[in-house]
Amino acid sequence: MEDTTAGNRCTVTDFLLAGLSEKPELQLPLFFIFIGIYMITVAGNLGMIILIGLSSHLHTPMYFFLSSLSFIDFCQSTVVTPKMLVSFLVEKNLISYSECLAQLYFVIIFGTAESYTLAVMAYDRYVAICNPLLYNVTMSSQIYCSLISGVYIFAVFCASLNIVFMFRVQFCRLEVVNHYFCDFLPLLKLACSSTYINEMLILFFGTLNIFVPMLTVITSYIFIIHSILHISSMEGRSKAFSTCSSHISAVAIFYGSVGFMYLQPLSVNSMDQGKVSSVFYTTVVPLLNPFIYSLRNKDVSVAVKKIFERK
């Protein structure tokens, strides 16, 4: 578990993941609940990607962003959930140091990408409702591909910088990570070297990656609501608002849970509260997004009917 190196210093090669709950009687019920959630999440998000790919009338910027969001949700859930399921079945859920940092790396990438994708989707709705005549020009294929590419490039940069500084942190003995996956705050609590730079990076990128997208979303919706109120017909208002309501729901759940987890000082943050908040953005949000965006969307319903009619 530990390698002895020069100067009586030890380097940890494995961690123990505490899991979501330590109560034995809850392990099996939680396993079945979360494996069910994971299967529905995978089916829902992959189904959304396939549906958008097969339906020519859904080849628009809004659905391009939605398929990207579904891909992010599928990946985020797959990075976290399988290892969490193992913790319900075994007494000691070991994860190697390299696997732990790899899991953390991808959690940061997909979490950051989701945050900015939701902001890009809000901007897309702003252009569609406030400047409909310029929509095809403002949201050309070149522009919306550049926006999503920028989201992923920045997400990889953010994750890479944080992981580089995580490699500098020393862990001196095998300890239990009080979480169901390798996340920043429970890992840093186990460090036996200074974590000041890491905490500052978490606070900086946490603030940046929540407040910049949130500001974009809020600003977009101020203009959207202003435009909707100037639509004369009640039917027009209802149609315009229905295209935004599902996005508002997804935004509220995601930013609320992420903000609660990361925008607190390390000394104040409660790991048990953090686990609950993490379940929302790693498990519940990827589960709900396909349903939030499909159940109230007539275009998606029509696309599903057409696919079944073909068969």
Rank of each mutant, 00 (worst) to 15 (best):
V86T: 12
Y262L: 14
S278K: 08
N45P: 06
L185D: 13
L118C: 03
I72N: 05
S149W: 06
L229E: 01
V151H: 02
E22K: 04
F167V: 03
F71M: 09
V164T: 06
I248W: 04
D73K: 06
G259W: 06
R310E: 13
L28T: 14
L28M: 13
S227I: 00
I72C: 08
S246N: 15
G206K: 08
D124A: 14
I129C: 08
L288W: 13
S160I: 02
S277W: 11
F15P: 08
G53Y: 13
F291H: 12
M200G: 01
L185K: 15
M39W: 03
M234D: 03
S238P: 00
K83P: 02
K275V: 09
V279P: 03
C158A: 04
N178E: 15
T78Y: 09
M48K: 01
Y97P: 06
G7M: 07
E22N: 11
L58S: 04
T219K: 01
N45T: 12
S96D: 10
C172N: 13
T112D: 11
S115G: 11
I37M: 13
Q264S: 15
M121S: 15
V304A: 13
F280G: 08
A191I: 07
F165H: 11
M214W: 01
S87F: 03
C130Q: 11
I148T: 05
K83C: 09
D299N: 14
L266E: 14
Y221N: 15
P24G: 06
S245N: 11
S70H: 12
V107S: 09
T219I: 03
I148F: 01
A119K: 01
M139V: 04
T219L: 09
T78L: 13
Y116G: 00
C10S: 13
M166G: 02
E22H: 05
Q103E: 15
R125Q: 14
Y38M: 15
T60D: 10
D3H: 04
L263I: 06
S278W: 07
K311I: 09
G206E: 02
T243Y: 00
L69A: 07
I228M: 00
I95Y: 14
I129P: 10
F184L: 13
V79I: 15
Q76N: 07
R125S: 06
I37W: 05
L133F: 12
L104K: 01
Y255L: 08
C100T: 10
I49M: 10
M48A: 14
Y152H: 03
I218L: 10
F181R: 03
I50Y: 05
S67D: 09
S160R: 04
S193M: 12
F308C: 08
L147Y: 11
Q142H: 00
E91V: 10
S149C: 04
T216M: 04
F184G: 06
I33N: 05
V176S: 10
L266N: 12
S270Y: 03
F184K: 00
M139D: 02
L17R: 07
T117G: 02
S68H: 10
I148Y: 02
V251D: 07
V156W: 03
V151A: 02
M261K: 04
F184I: 10
L161E: 05
S70D: 09
F106E: 09
A240R: 03
F110K: 05
F15A: 12
C145M: 04
V164M: 02
V251C: 10
D124Q: 14
L16V: 15
S149E: 00
A102Y: 08
R9P: 05
I50F: 14
L161N: 01
L187D: 05
L201N: 11
D3P: 00
I40H: 00
G7P: 09
I248S: 07
